[in-house]
C-alpha cells in the first residue's frame, strides 16, 4: 500500500486537529509543525472543509477545527476523501494471451485491497491517537531509562 501525498497530509492534519477538538490551527501552524508544504496542505484543508471533516473558523485567532466524532471517524474515511484504495496493475495494454495472468493478479490484488481496507476501516481516529500517545510515552520512558 502506498498512500498518496494528499491522503497522508489529510491524515496528519486530521489527527493533529482531532487530538484536541477545541484547538484551532492555521494551515501554516500545521505545515510548520510537521515541516510539510503549506501549498499542498492548503488544498487538502479545503477538501477536508468541503467534506465537513474540519471547520474553518474566521476572524482573529481563526483557523481550522476538527468537526467530526473521533470515535466514529476511521482512517479509511479520511483516505477515501483523496483516493479509492484500489490497486491497479500498471500495464495499460496487454494481449489476449496475458488475460489469465492479469485475471489472477487482479484477484490477488483485490484480496490484498480487501484486507487493507478492513484494517483502515476499523481504526478510528481515537484508537490511532491513543496508540500514538502510548508509543510516544514508551519512547520517552525508554529514553529516560537509558
Amino acid at each position: 500500500m502506498k498512500l498518496n501525498k494528499a491522503s497522508l497530509l489529510g491524515l496528519i492534519a486530521v489527527l493533529e486537529l482531532a487530538d484536541d477538538p477545541e484547538q484551532q490551527l492555521s494551515t501554516t501552524d500545521i505545515a510548520e509543525k510537521y515541516d510539510i508544504s503549506t501549498h499542498h496542505l492548503a488544498k487538502v484543508m479545503r477538501n477536508l472543509v468541503h467534506k465537513g471533516v474540519v471547520q474553518a473558523m474566521r476572524g482573529v485567532g481563526g483557523g481550522y477545527r476538527f468537526a467530526g466524532n473521533p470515535n466514529r471517524t476511521t482512517l479509511l474515511d479520511i483516505i477515501q476523501l483523496f483516493e479509492t484504495m484500489e490497486s491497479e496493475l500498471d500495464l495499460p495494454h496487454w494481449s489476449k494471451a496475458a488475460d489469465p495472468i492479469i485475471s489472477e493478479l487482479q484477484s490477488i490484488t483485490n484480496e490484498i485491497d480487501d484486507v487493507t481496507k478492513a484494517i483502515l476501516e476499523t481504526i478510528t481516529l481515537s484508537a490511532a491517537l491513543k496508540n500514538m500517545h502510548l508509543r510516544s510515552e514508551a519512547t520517552k520512558n525508554n529514553g529516560a531509562s537509558s
Binding site: 478492513a118 476501516e121 476499523t122 481504526i123 478510528t124 484508537a127 491513543k130 496508540n131
Partner: peptide, 8 residues
Amino acid sequence: LSFLRAMG
C-alpha cells in the same frame, strides 16, 4: 473490529 483495535 473497531472495539478490538481500540483494545490494542
